[in-house]
Amino acid sequence: MSFALEIRNLKKAFGGLEVTRDVSLTVAAGARHALIGPNGAGKSTLVNLITGVLKPSGGEILLGGSGIGNLSQAERVKRGLARTFQINSLFPTMTVAENVALAMVAHDGADARVLDNISRDPALAARIGEHLLRLNLADTADRLVSNLSYGQQRIVEVALALALRPNVLLLDEPAAGLAAKDVEMLLDLLKGLPDTVSVLIIEHDMDLVFRFAQTITVLVDGRVLLTGTPEEVRKDQRVRDVYLGRRHG
């Protein structure tokens, strides 16, 4: 079976501190996979290893069956990997439309074109308009990102990642800091993603996780504790112990 994303025995140590310990994980094509765990479990480190922000100490990362461990961050994106950030990482001095245009132009491989005037490209303008409409961001197109509410900025985060038309989308705590109604909006948005996009979501909002994910992996102390369906994870005593305070070696 081919997986959209496969991680084999991934390791990461900062000096003597091991934060990712032999992690193996598979995300099937079109899957809605969640990664949960208490603070300090190594979830964001894992995303940083997958996207190339950090270099692993060992192990393999395969995207669509091909190793990407030696590729740069940019090359991994070109292979269909996109991510959002736990803390917004946008272009605050630019408009929402410009933010999305950056991603679209990069995806098209047209970001170095010196003679193409961005405001004279009707096809690009139409695509941006459709994209923003789909994400309920149409009325913010001409606003600077720095002037948006936090919830809107979180949606722009997702909008940027989706504009790259990824095969695998890594969402790093997309609901962090969102009001309840914004979480619902985010959930609707995520549920509406096409099956061509495989999603690996890291999230502390368990309600969101259990309503969205088909498969859940629990990470504790840098190790995979369990992978299973939401029901299996919900019933597992070890998971309850981790979240209620008892630790497992």
Binding site: L90, T93, D111
Partner: peptide, 23 residues
Amino acid sequence: NSNFGLTARGIRSNAQRMQLLGV
């Protein structure tokens, strides 16, 4: 005014994110 000019502004604003847009 070009795609490249937009890219340059993006790099000025957030170079790390530009890497993760594949630039």
